[in-house]
Amino acid sequence: MNSNAAIPVPARPAPTTASEALAAVSTMPVWPLRSPPQQSQLNTLATGSSPLAARATWALGLKLTSPEFVAAEPAEQARLLKAALSETPLLPGVVSTDTASQVKTAAAYTVSGPTLDAAHAFPGSIRDADKFVVTIGGREVPVFLPHDGQFTPPVQHTVEDVAKALASLPAPSLGQVKQVNIDPIANPEDAFWARTYGMANFSSYMTCGSEGRIDIYPANDPRDVKYLADTLVHETGHAWSNKAWGDDPQGPAWAPWREAVRQDGLLPSTYAGSSPAEDVAESTALYLAMKGTPLAEEYRKLYPKRFELLDRQFGGQS
């Protein structure tokens, strides 16, 4: 496992270990300012074997033993510590950076077809399609791609890519997917989004519909199977949280999640910090990826309140 592969570690003097730093911090006035669960969380970071813990060795080690930190007032130490727990280099940009090390064995799958599906409705384009059926554990997912095999732009996932991605999904994520379209053209809405947000360099990768229809758009650059699977798992978090709590992450129904985020303190990724909706999607992806792995309990200690809520959604611990 190369947990630091996606986050380069800058060339700096060899850091004090997180354990040594934590031992020092536990004697400082800032320590009682953290609740017992938060103290336990730091211990887990300092002594664990997760990718987060690996980065904590230098991310927290250097920060917590710096002269600035040691000399700071307790309130300032608390602020600095909170900041260190909310940013890179400790956190990954997205949780899929870390869950790569815990890839579970993909389920067996078969691909049958194709059969011709005349005048298939792709976004912005009606044309004949080849229909394949991917079967995973008795569950069948139809996959459509243009019969003429033409894509604009030219790079697109294959049926085999889709089958592999579906076979790697946790059951709750796979359960959401009812149909996959490997689309022949770029998302027709991209021009509107570019005008609306004033950024022309974004293009659509995927659209997930509420009824489990997935549209994957062609691109100029190749994307791997893992990226495809990660995006589908991330979407699982949006789907369940919207059904449970509605569309306003600042609304009262979302209060339990916001409180869990507050009590846990530590973010699962920097992207999770962009909104409570992204926090629940990233946390769900982390939870499902780690469930049943040797690191599950370690992550539960890092995000106890979030995992408690996710247990209720996904049927408890395992």
Binding site: D190, W193, F202, S204, Y205, M206, D221, E235, K243, G246
Partner: peptide
């Protein structure tokens, strides 16, 4: 989102 607050679709974009 729809009138009732239901999530209707999510589009994921990447930049180059």
């Amino acid at each position: 989102y729809g009138v009732d607050g239901a999530l209707l679709s999510t589009t994921y974009q990447q930049s180059r």
